[in-house]
Design a binder for these strands. Structure first.
Lengths: 199, 199
DNA sequence: GTCTATACATCGATAGAC
DNA sequence: GTCTATCGATGTATAGAC
């Protein structure tokens, strides 16, 4: 990373990715055009192939960049500490983050680009995030598969609604605390009663 | 609707729409090709323009058809009766319905076709469904905007997870009862206590 | 209503000069 | 590393014969 040539190359790559996010936000993720993208960054379309092997490789770079942003966002927030309060913050932050950039949310969590499959390297980042998430849920006492499934649905629903219907706002993120309390009290109630739950 | 010519025309239109669902399921909604579609129904591509004014009009017909299916599905199930049990059924049915056809779910509830906007006539069907849904929620005592937002997020999340990660299965729909109980007991607890909630 | 033919645009990708 | 030039495929839409 000290070689100035590599550094310049990487910074150009980053600039292309940034421009790609903007274009995708304007025209739609699946309608992204390499010609438009190139001219946006002051290049001709074939020159993009110096930085990306194919259009799918560009999508993969976006997918990768999105998860990199998400991991950075979560890491600088430190989700350790009192479990319930941590879970509330985690949920609220995640919903807000989703609403902050609709197209980024679509790329990471919805399948809207026909034919695109993330590479194993990109999937590794996704997995890393899901490990962070399950860690926060585990700490709060959500360990059973059914609890995780249901809470993940809650996260997913609040995030997608936030992204689709109130981007940049707090219409759904503001209910993070209520949602967590509702969920945790139900989960503990289900576990403690004298007769015992199913399974 | 008695004119046999109109009837034949409508049945052909319906056949095209059915084929379009299949192709979209195979190649992706945004990658739907009119050439492929035409040859699937034994026509040449230009002949499709006898039935649809443009490709966007075809997408609109799919959107419309999807909500027509959904409304038919809900109407033949009669969501009147005991409110809590009705809400459970409504949620479970909806999540299962979403998982039964991924691409239909994407068309109706996600924005994955760049440039496509439903026509007012199609939006009217969507609105009709949302009125059914809010009716079921109202009957169960969910009337405040925040309750509706949060429960709609739950519906959305369970449906999208079902469609994305267990299409045709019951991994999320099976938790409908738990989800409703959790939600309703939280909502009533929040409303009844001596000190009173916010707002 | 269906066809052939075609216009017209766009796009992803490659070859090769500089 | 960037360019020009271009290929080849695909795609929507239209014109006009039958």
């Amino acid at each position: 990373m000290i070689d100035p040539r590599i550094e310049r190359r990487e910074s150009k790559r980053a600039a292309i990715i940034t421009a790609a996010w903007e274009l995708a936000g304007r025209d739609g993720l699946a309608a992204l055009s390499l010609h438009d993208l190139a001219s946006t960054v002051g290049l001709r379309q074939p020159s993009l192939y110096v930085y990306f092997d194919s259009k799918m490789a560009l999508y993969d770079a976006l997918f990768c960049d999105g998860y990199r942003q998400l991991l950075e966002y979560t890491k600088e927030r430190d989700y350790t500490g009192e479990p319930r309060e941590t879970l509330v913050r985690f949920l609220r932050d995640l919903v807000e983050w989703s609403g902050a950039d609709v197209v980024r949310y679509q790329m990471l969590f919805q399948r809207s680009v026909p034919g695109f499959e993330p590479s194993p390297a990109s999937w590794a980042l996704a997995t890393e995030f899901y490990e962070v998430a399950t860690g926060v849920l585990h700490a709060a006492g959500l360990t059973e598969a059914s609890d995780l499934d249901l809470f993940s649905a809650l996260i997913s629903g609040m995030s997608s609604q936030q992204a689709a219907n109130d981007p940049g706002g707090t219409r759904w993120s503001q209910h993070a605390e209520r949602a967590v309390d509702m969920f945790l009290s139900a989960a503990t109630r289900r576990r403690s009663p004298r007769k015992g739950g199913k399974k």
